[in-house]
C-alpha cells in the first residue's frame, strides 16, 4: 500500500506556507490599496475568520484521515495547520479591533461581555492562543501529561468557533450549516476518546 513519506510531509508543509502566507499577503495588499469590492474591513474580517475555521477543521480532520487510510505521517501536519488556524484567528480579531473598532477598547469589552457570539468567539481564540504557545516540543516535554489535557480543549475551540460563525450571520441555512455538520462529524468521531477521558477524570 502507498504510504506518505516524511519527504512528502516536508513538501506539503512548504506548500501550506506558500498558500497561507500568499493568501494573507494578497488580501492585505488588496485591502490597503482599496481593491476589494465593498467594505475592505468587513471582507478582511470575514476572510480571515473563515480561513481560521477551515484550518481548524482541517487540523481536526487529520487524525481520523490518518487512521482510516493508515497514513500516520499526516499527524506531523497537525501542529503547523493548528498554528495557521491561530494565525488567521488572531488576524481576524486584530482586524476587528484595529480597523473596525479603531481601538475603542471599551466597545471591545462591552461586545465580549454582552454579545454571546463575541463571547464564544473570544473564548475560542483564547484557547487557540494557549495551544499555540504550548506547541514547541520543549514546552510539551515540560508539561508532561498536562499537555494532552490542555490540548484536548481544541475540540471546544472548534465547536465555539463554528457557533460564533452561526450566531454572527442573519440566517444560518447555507454555509454555516455545512460547518456545523462537519464539526459535528469530527466531534462524534471522538466520542470514545471523550468517554474514556471523562471516566479517567472521575477515577482520579
Amino acid at each position: 500500500m502507498y504510504r506518505i513519506k516524511p519527504a512528502h510531509i516536508t513538501g506539503i508543509k512548504v506548500i501550506t506556507h506558500g498558500i497561507c502566507l500568499g493568501f494573507i499577503a494578497l488580501f492585505y495588499y488588496w485591502g490597503f490599496t482599496d481593491q476589494l469590492e465593498g467594505d475592505p474591513v468587513k471582507i478582511l474580517i470575514h476572510q480571515m475568520g473563515i480561513a481560521a475555521l477551515n484550518m481548524l477543521l482541517l487540523t481536526l480532520a487529520l487524525s481520523p484521515i490518518a487512521k482510516t487510510f493508515r497514513q500516520s505521517a499526516l499527524i506531523k501536519l497537525r501542529r503547523l495547520f493548528g498554528l495557521y488556524s491561530f494565525a488567521f484567528a488572531a488576524l481576524h480579531f486584530t482586524n476587528y479591533l484595529v480597523f473596525d473598532l479603531q481601538l475603542d477598547w471599551a466597545n471591545l469589552f462591552e461586545d465580549i461581555i454582552k454579545r454571546p457570539y463575541m463571547t464564544v468567539g473570544f473564548v475560542s481564540i483564547i484557547i487557540l492562543f494557549a495551544l499555540s504557545i504550548t506547541s514547541p516540543d520543549n514546552v510539551k516535554r515540560k508539561m508532561k501529561k498536562h499537555w494532552q489535557t490542555l490540548h484536548n480543549f481544541v475540540y471546544l475551540s472548534g465547536a465555539l468557533g463554528v457557533l460564533h460563525y452561526i450566531w454572527s450571520v442573519k440566517t444560518s441555512v447555507g454555509k454555516p450549516l455545512v460547518y456545523l455538520i462537519i464539526i459535528t462529524i469530527l466531534l462524534v468521531l471522538r466520542k470514545d476518546k471523550a468517554k474514556h477521558w471523562i471516566k479517567k477524570q472521575f477515577k482520579a
Partner: peptide, 8 residues
C-alpha cells in the same frame, strides 16, 4: 488547496 482557505 487554495480553496481550503476560500470563502465565497
Amino acid at each position: 488547496m487554495g480553496s481550503l482557505l476560500a470563502s465565497s
